[in-house]
Write a protein that binds this DNA or RNA. Structure first.
Lengths: 341, 341
DNA sequence: ATTAGCACTCTGTGCTTGTGAGTGCTAACC
DNA sequence: GGTTAGCACTCACAAGCACAGAGTGCTAAT
């Protein structure tokens, strides 16, 4: 359904005013302060039609209009102009993210915190998918005594390290044996292939050494399992409480997002690396009825690698947020590429 | 000031009832349902005296009494009996904390989350102090390409790892050089002694190699600096919002605790490893006027190592919380000892 | 197609009133 | 002297009501 040029301008003005003020917008305000050169009565007629079409709604009879979910949708898809991040913003973003050279986990965490900070919303970032990746190498660092640190490095950029406690003093023979047998048997496998049974079969073949290697092998299986699941990082969950739109529901939405599997379900990447905006009930979940999600996929080494996005009130400054999310998704991808050239 | 036996019982009953219900307690309730064998008028007389002494106060004229801060103080110091954690609780605690064998950071993080979960309050845990500790060893793990992982292990149990990006392909000569020169020069020093100038002087003496070693050395200085500051872990900040005592102020208290330097200032260990309860204004900060802090120090290898505690409404179940904090502080110390035998 | 005018609707605020809970005080009692 | 019954008093809170203000929808005139 295509709106007339004037209806479009009215919808856009109402939406943008509402985004800023959070108050319903009345016909009087539009005719007096928003630069329309027609009377409030004319605007009322237009607004009545827009209401009938489902683009505007009234909180109550004697209030002004606010955009309905469909109104926001139309505004986002057809009316809004984008504000690309300013060079000051870009500088801020880069200087925050450059300080994590090399560590993908920290890189993603700071992407989340930058997103949260600059949008004032809650940010969600997934770690890279493990699909199609393989274990590149596994290293052991003796820490003295019975402790060893294990570092598993996966081709999608993921690094998992864990400290492993052996039953006896760690010997160089043990470490050598691990490298020779286990590491070589596991390298180039996909993380999700490394199951405990697989590791146990391997252990069985070690004969005498099986027992002393057990902690290392289970730690390895554990690390691989962890590398196989896409983790979810969040930041700025407390921002949720700042928005008066969430008053009352704020704490429960926060609780909802704190659950990682909930959080990750919200992000749905566009097919072509585009930013997607998912409004209210489009999220198909009760907690997000008056919230919206702006998300994008990031890619690394030319393939879709993960997703990131923000959750905020439906009344948010899409014109600025959409380009920001796009920019950060691109930057994360580029920095991941750089890390694992 | 010593209260008569009956006044003590009245204060304790009012406090305990108020802790459970959150409502002011009236004389009628006490005489009817709380097992006092005197009339409400008698209790009113006693309560009036307790009010005059500053142990009770009234939200308004026609309401019942609630304990004042001094009332809570007297109750905690002299009246309350402690409920040691049940064996079920102990089992829950241990099974949550045992899964972090070896990694002190994770151990402390799960201590925080157990504390938060079991008390329904926000939990704060500091990492071990660096005072008196020294760098035990530093290891490098080549991750392929230009990346190296550095693991700095400190004698107080702290481990700091960071990924470091070199300017060229990492060579074994480089790593060897680092081990030979730098690691030996730094080992057994206190983390706070490792300053950037110190590292730079060392680099200068490396001649030709100074340039290629620079990223490793700055990473090391960085890791040492990080190991020198006591970090603060928090958990369950969102619990703050659940307490109706914090209604309105909840978000700002949460914000206050999110600031680590604020959080750590709240914990004040007792002199003798005792649990300390710090009530409302005793915290000397506006945000905590109706909150209280229950904290204890934990020790490792026989010396005071760090602190942990919780922040919650003044109306909390001290009889259960105090022993719980004591138990977890002891357990953390014991587990840290075990980790770094 | 646009506009002025007017009746109508609904919210939010302030005011009043009534109710219930709990106290403080006094005088009687053991 | 400690304890108790009785009563007047205070205060928070909810309900009811009037009123102002904002904004609309409709009609008739331009």
């Amino acid at each position: 359904m295509e709106l007339s040029e004037r209806k479009g301008r009215i919808l856009a003005t109402i939406t943008e005013t509402y985004i800023v003020t959070g108050e319903p917008v009345g016909s009087k305000y539009l005719s007096a302060s928003a630069g329309f050169r027609v009377s409030s009565a004319t605007l009322r007629n237009e607004m009545a039609e827009l209401s009938e079409m489902g683009f505007l709604e009234q909180p109550h009879t004697s209030a002004g209009r606010i955009p309905s979910q469909n109104g926001f949708r139309y505004y986002i898809d057809r009316l809004m102009g984008l504000y690309e991040p300013s060079s000051v913003d870009i500088f801020r973003i880069r200087s925050r993210m450059d300080s994590n050279e090399g560590d993908p986990q920290k890189l993603l965490a700071s992407a989340a915190s930058v997103l949260a900070e600059m949008t004032g919303c809650a940010a969600i970032v997934t770690t890279p998918y493990s699909a199609g990746s393989h274990i590149r190498r596994t290293d052991l660092v003796p820490l003295g005594g019975r402790n060893v640190m294990m570092v598993v490095s996966v081709s999608n950029g993921t690094l998992k390290s864990r400290i492993c406690r052996c039953d006896n003093e760690v010997s160089y023979e043990m470490i050598d044996l691990f490298y020779k047998i286990a590491a070589s048997a596991f390298a180039d496998r996909a993380p999700e292939e490394i199951t405990l049974p697989l590791v146990q079969t391997l252990a069985a073949s070690l004969g005498d050494h099986a027992f002393e290697m057990a902690p290392l092998l289970t730690a390895f299986a554990d690390a691989a399992r962890e590398a196989a699941v896409t983790d979810v990082l969040t930041a700025g969950l407390s921002n949720i409480l700042r928005h008066r739109d969430f008053e009352g529901r704020g704490a429960s939405l926060q609780e909802f997002l704190r659950n990682r599997s909930n959080a990750v379900r919200l992000l749905r990447a566009g097919t072509d690396g585009q930013v997607r905006v998912i409004l209210g009930s489009e999220n198909r979940c009760r907690e997000l009825l008056n919230a919206s999600v702006v998300c994008a996929g990031y890619s690394a080494h030319g393939r879709e690698a993960g997703m990131l996005g923000i959750v905020g009130p439906m009344r948010m400054d899409y014109a600025a947020v959409v380009p920001l999310v796009r920019y950060i998704a691109g930057l994360v991808g580029a920095m991941l590429d750089e890390n694992t050239e």
